Amino acid sequence: MYRILIVEDEKDIRLELKLMLENALYQAEAAEDFSDIPRLVDETAPDLILLDIQLPGTDGLKVCRDIRKKTDVPIIFVTSRSNSMDELNGMMMGGDDYITKPYQAPILLARIAAVLKRTGHNKAPENPCRFTWKGCELDMLQGTLTYEGRSEQLTRNELRICCNLFSRAGQIISREELIDDLWENQIFIDDNTLSVNITRIRGKLKEIGLENLIVTRRGQGYQL
């Protein structure tokens, strides 16, 4: 299992990344002290680092440069700074990739797998868009839900909704977030259509032997 070190100072994003990686079957470590990241890299020996640029008391670009003095571990910048000069500086300091927030979980996972493969880590997952929660597997490439050998095919809308829920399993995802994600991906959907799709997903989960995997949090949204 690959170990990924998360260097992100915003707690909510750090926890979201950790859950997403663990659900994708990576081992995730999250830094909470940013005073000596190169030392932490030595101690944890990660296979890849997700590195923010804006860190308390330091700068992710400098951290990347300091890490590069000791190791060639792959580094992906995950940051809200989106101008081309920041991306260029990140690459010049030794970064292997650069992705801006807000990110889509499948895209980030695909970029992680691509960097691991490109940098010589040949055991990177063949399918980086696979999530597992309580024995149920969501395969983004096949568009299926599988549990104990039984599978159900998902529609495009259902797949996008499941991607949000599985990539952030354990967290409450608001109805507004789900609708916004589908709208951004050019799938027309309204509030009633979302309810219909959730009902259909629950029906498919029941068909493969799972009930109550998706919980409604009244006034808040849905949660795995």
Rank of each mutant, 00 (worst) to 15 (best):
M1S: 12
I4C: 02
I6P: 07
E10F: 06
I13K: 10
R14E: 13
K18Q: 13
N23H: 14
A24Y: 10
Y26H: 06
A30G: 07
D42L: 09
E43H: 04
A45E: 15
L48A: 12
I49L: 09
L50T: 01
D52R: 00
Q54K: 04
L61Q: 00
K62A: 13
V63F: 08
C64R: 05
D66Q: 13
R68A: 05
F77N: 02
S80I: 06
S80E: 12
M85R: 14
G90V: 01
G90Q: 08
M91C: 04
M91S: 03
G94I: 00
D97L: 02
I99P: 04
K101S: 01
K101Q: 11
Y103R: 10
P106N: 03
L108K: 12
I112E: 04
V115Y: 06
G120Q: 09
C129Y: 03
C129K: 12
T132M: 10
W133Y: 14
E137D: 00
D139N: 15
L145V: 02
T146I: 08
Y147Q: 02
E152P: 07
Q153K: 10
L154W: 01
L154F: 02
T155A: 04
N157K: 14
I161N: 09
N164R: 05
N164S: 04
L165W: 00
L165T: 05
F166N: 00
F166E: 00
S167D: 00
I172P: 05
S174C: 09
D180M: 09
D181F: 06
D181H: 06
Q186I: 04
D190A: 04
D191P: 00
T193K: 14
L194K: 07
R200S: 08
T216L: 11
Y222M: 10
